[in-house]
Design a binder for these strands. Structure first.
Lengths: 168, 168
DNA sequence: GCAATATACTAGGACATCCAAGGGTTTGGA
DNA sequence: TCCAAACCCTTGGATGTCCTAGTATATTGC
């Protein structure tokens, strides 16, 4: 999008916050802004790796989730809950994955309200290949040190739990 | 969107990664996924606080940026660079802010290609009020401990720098 | 057993982000 | 001087996310 800035814009924002008398919350503001920006960078990397496979991150996440399900199938509402996105987002992703013949919708055997998403053979193969690519090109070169990774997992895990993501 | 899950879905994903022989990258995968999810939670909180002001986070960021500029005005390309978003995203935000009379577009005095975004009096007032709300309702209650905030700022700062965000 | 409530998925709409292309303005080298 | 290359902003299109209904199916309670 652009060349590197001369100075860190988030550090500048933090200084601005302090200068305006909001020093009390300047650091958390900076941390939160940094999380937003980091997510943006990571998402761009991931999408770049997935593009050759004709996948987006949202669709990949669904494929990966299905590939770990015993039967290779999950109800849409389960997928929505596990991926922690709105049900309509799952509908959207399934529509596109189904057009690409990577999944199929099938009726739930006992509950007429529920629709099952099933991985096709192609879907399973593509999920494997895409995962290998992400592992080697993104997760394997995250740029985070081992200690930092552990720290992030712990701190963000606590945050997500406090936010009500899971009971554990 | 839903009630808490019985177990942490990201920890489950990490276990799945390990079970499939990708233990080497399971932890970074979990950390990255946690960052994505945390961003989603934080964005939802922020948008919730800004909604009463008729603002979204993208528009708020632009207003805040302008409010810190000496003259209360910035060229669009500068705003795009500092906010680290695509120029078309700035165009979009300015269109809406201008409709709301919070900013105005004006021609650059010496460069005919450039458009300046200028804060209106209303825009400046709203930015102040929205910032106060975010400070007290989000940044002041982030849920991150002081040490964790410092750690996040450092680790994510290093990451952003390595990603080419800034030279410093 | 049947009506009221809850649950599951989808359709339509509002926003944001990015990319690709197009039209206008500046700059720089031949 | 002048034209090509670089730069700036906007338009149009593709995706994703969420929200608000609306339809269909299950469950519950009387």
């Amino acid at each position: 999008m652009g060349s590197p800035l001369p100075r860190d814009p988030i550090a500048d924002a933090q200084r601005n916050w302090e200068r305006h008398g909001w020093g009390e919350v300047a650091a958390p503001m900076a941390a939160i802004t940094a999380i937003m920006r980091t997510q943006q960078i990571l998402l761009a990397r991931i999408e770049g790796v997935l593009k050759p496979f004709g996948l987006t991150f949202a669709r990949y996440e669904l494929l990966a989730l299905l590939s770990f399900a015993r039967s290779g199938a999950l109800p849409m509402n389960k997928a929505s809950a596990l991926l922690q996105v709105h049900p309509t987002s799952v509908t959207n992703a399934v529509d596109r994955l189904e057009k690409a013949a990577l999944v199929v919708r099938s009726p739930h055997p006992t509950d007429g309200r529920t629709t099952l998403i099933e991985l096709t053979a192609e879907g399973r193969t593509l999920a494997k290949r895409a995962t290998a690519a992400l592992n080697s090109e993104v997760f394997g070169q995250s740029g985070f040190g081992d200690d930092d990774v552990e720290h992030l997992i712990r701190v963000l895990g606590d945050f997500r739990k406090a936010a009500g993501d899971f009971a554990d």
